[in-house]
Amino acid sequence: MAKGYLVDTTKCIGCRGCVVACKNWNQLPAEPTGFKGTYQTVADFSGNTFTYIGFNEYEENGQLKWYFMKRQCMHCLDPACMKVCPQKAISIVDGAVVRDYGKCAGCQYCASACPFHVPKYNTKINKETKCSMCAERVAEGMLPACVKACVTGALQFGERDELLASARERVNALKAEYPNARVYGEKEAGGTNVLYVLADVPSKYGLPENPQVSALTTAWQNYVKPYGPWLIALTAAGSILSFFSTRLLKVGQRAHEEESLHG
């Protein structure tokens, strides 16, 4: 019974109330942004930005169309960040992937493992940061700050199963107008607790079509780390073996007695 929330992008008007609410609740300082030829103010996650709205502009049938995309941690069912964390600082609390800042050593392994490139390093506190689905609010029976702030009902908090059912329903209703409409997060990256209703293909929103943990991270985590160190045990054992076998085989040989350590 994992909790999550549904982002219905077709209901999002890009007001960015959720972004402000997130900053507010998490007490994150504002970061100066510059004009980059788009209405989108925040370009990407940062050590002080856990969520932002992507303003994806497309010209369709002579009309400008926005495909708004609220980005934040996807809260994977099987998070890659949790697997690579050597400090075991990341855990799942009622569906939310939460970081324990007391344990995080700022090694940044999670940042490169995340198939959605969400965690970002905060230099000031030497910690990796990301959205926690407001686990501390949820524990007190409150809604996550962003969901609470949403004015259009684009954000919906609840049990994953129920959200999935309502997402499917919504997609069916959208199909007539948006033939490419779909649910995102049901199976992607092994399933996520944040679900999306998209009007079109994920790439149009800047989301990975097939988010996967990279082969390099898998090789590192599943092969190099668990098996590699045995090489050290092997050479150490070889040296110990040689220490005894040389002494057993060369007993009484003057040639080497002369060349002993203190000779």
Binding site: A236, S239, F243, T246, K250, E259, L261, H262, G263
Partner: peptide, 16 residues
């Protein structure tokens, strides 16, 4: 390092 430390110290003949 395991080989190196051993061969540079306790291995007979390498002692010096």
């Amino acid at each position: 390092v395991c080989f190196h430390a051993y061969l540079g110290s306790l291995h007979p003949g390498s002692g010096e």
